[in-house]
Design a protein around this nucleic acid. Structure first.
Lengths: 185, 185
DNA sequence: ATGGGCATGTAAGGAGTTACATGATTCA
DNA sequence: TGAATCATGTAACTCCTTACATGCCCAT
């Protein structure tokens, strides 16, 4: 079955940046660059590549270099570039955000305060992990050329700023809950 | 078909807060309180309510007050409370974040800089809209009782902090792009 | 009497995830 | 020779979204 959502554009865009790539390689690059706001799995990448090829937005490159393992290398066609650019110049649609962590917190008065505090502390740990992984990604950005690096640094900075703001909010929230806890002693 | 995802818990939790509610009323409250991180549609609410009733997690209240329009009022059973609390004390699973806006920005070097700058400005406008809607929700929180208000204010503050950090990031990013633009003149 | 809010659902489809399945190559 | 990485895919499923469909009640 052909997929037709946003994955299409994510893959098209990444392929445009890399000029040419296999599905496997695409996944690797998505993981090392857009991981904090966009992920893809093999199960979506391969069918999407097939669908994009059928739509003539990408083509398979016939490179049969000797001694090399069999793999499918794709590159964008002119039509592919056109479709991609057309999508890029449109403003983004509203995001559907579902945050299970916040949902649980919202229902916090249904469980003991100390469990919620623990959840917040665990969340902080996770956020710190994200922070260091973003710093690792920042290093990986050097793979791409300088103009791409610029935009990559923007999205990465966004992630970093969000994590930092979250960490501050966690601390404030924990303090408020602890104050609540003391009041009830 | 019975639904079995996170919607179940969102509805169970909201029902626990409200003590009792119709599906329609649930939607209203979800909109006015968790809108920034959790939404539900009628198409999920009604089937989920039916499924929850079959699982004996909620029951329909026989209130046939004269002169009142027909509607289904539900409330949690003991089993429902147990299931809900059990979910609440488990740490939240990792969120799958997909941000189309950031994805487009990441591919920004494929389109003219001024379009990207415009996208950022439009995004700022949207963020400011969110900010004022959060302030409106903060007022609506007064519907709930004080302990629930506390947790509602936490999740809301999270939204506000994220928006504020985003706005700052937008300004920084716009400045960087404008500098880039001037360099290329 | 009519428009808006209240109220409840169904049907079909879309998009992505998880689990399953396989095999080649490289390096230690 | 065995583990890790490269490499490609299928099948089933789940969940949610969009569009559709209906009708009451209340206020102006």
């Amino acid at each position: 079955m052909a997929k037709s959502g946003k994955s299409q554009f994510a893959i098209l865009g990444m392929l445009a940046l890399l000029k040419q790539s296999s599905g496997y390689n695409l996944k690797k690059h998505i993981e090392s660059t857009t991981h904090n706001f966009w992920k893809e799995t093999f199960s979506s990448i391969y069918p999407v590549l097939e669908s994009l090829e059928q739509q003539k937005l990408i083509i398979k490159i016939d490179e049969a270099p000797e001694n090399e393992r069999q793999r499918n290398i794709y590159t964008l066609t002119k039509k592919g570039h056109k479709i991609l650019e057309n999508w890029l110049i449109q403003p983004a649609e509203n995001i559907q955000i579902r945050n299970e962590f916040l949902l649980k917190l919202f229902f916090g008065n249904l469980i003991p305060v100390d469990i919620t505090i623990q959840h917040l502390k665990d969340y902080k740990k996770k956020l710190r992990t994200y922070l260091s992984s973003y710093q690792a990604i920042k290093k990986d950005l050097s793979i791409l050329d300088s103009s791409e690096k610029l935009y990559g640094s923007f999205t990465l900075d966004h992630g970093i700023e969000m994590v930092l703001a979250s960490l501050t909010w966690c601390d404030t929230t924990i303090k408020k809950l602890q104050a609540q806890q003391n009041k009830n002693l």
